[in-house]
């Protein structure tokens, strides 16, 4: 146990398409080399915002629950839904509030702005530095592999169907080269009209 972000393993990726976004994660939860669970979902839904958390599983659970509280409170007080960029800033300030004693998580936010219709993806480091991207963002133990896959496979203005294929292959191929990422994949494709397609990928189980 040398790096808390690599105890449990796991990765996630999000991509922008034409009037759509996709976010995907693997399903493994491990304790070092032992796979404890093969259906540990790392993507959480907050209204129209989809947030993936990778890193130390206990912190993933703590932060995702804390975000659920804050999201619910926001919608109750504001009487409106939360936009993706707002969710991203909320995540950022939650993480930065623990600047000198961080949560060991690497979040991604994906969603579509309900007023402008703009797709939005954003990644963070463990202390809340935001990286708003106009193509793709990655996080987790397979970060390097995901960057390599996404950088070569990604195309601008993909249709929801095309985006699903690209993000899935990006995740699956990256997971093949990371021992502690895998055991299945989960993909959400979110379209401008509010349609969400959730797919459970068939993948190798080693």
């Amino acid at each position: 146990m040398s790096n808390p972000s690599e105890i449990n393993g796991g990765s996630a990726v999000a991509m922008i398409g034409k009037d759509c976004v996709a976010i995907a994660c693997d399903l493994r939860l491990g304790l070092q080399s032992v796979t404890v669970s093969g259906d540990f979902e790392k993507i959480f839904q907050y209204g129209g915002n989809f947030v993936a958390f990778t890193g130390l599983a206990t912190d993933v659970q703590t932060v995702s629950t804390e975000l659920r509280q804050k999201h619910a409170l926001y919608e109750m007080v504001e009487e409106r839904s939360m936009e993706p960029n707002t969710a991203a800033h909320l995540v950022s300030s939650m993480l930065y509030s623990r600047r000198f004693a961080p949560w060991f998580v690497g979040p991604l936010v994906a969603g579509i702005n309900s007023t402008t219709g703009e797709p939005y993806v954003c990644s963070f480091d463990s202390i809340g530095s935001m990286d708003v991207s106009h193509d793709f963002v990655v996080t987790g133990t397979a970060t390097n592999q995901l960057y390599g896959m996404a950088e070569s496979l990604y195309e601008k203005d993909m249709s929801p169907e095309q985006l699903f294929e690209t993000i899935s292959q990006t995740l699956l191929c990256a997971a093949d080269r990371d021992a502690i990422t895998g055991s299945g994949g989960l993909v959400y494709v979110i379209e401008k009209n509010g349609k969400v397609t959730k797919k459970l990928l068939k993948s190798r189980q080693d």
């Binding site: 105890i7 939860l29 599983a57 206990t58 659970q61």
Partner: peptide, 10 residues
């Protein structure tokens, strides 16, 4: 439920 000392609950 499986819970370890770190607080991982699955």
């Amino acid at each position: 439920h499986w819970i370890d000392y770190l607080g991982t609950n699955v």
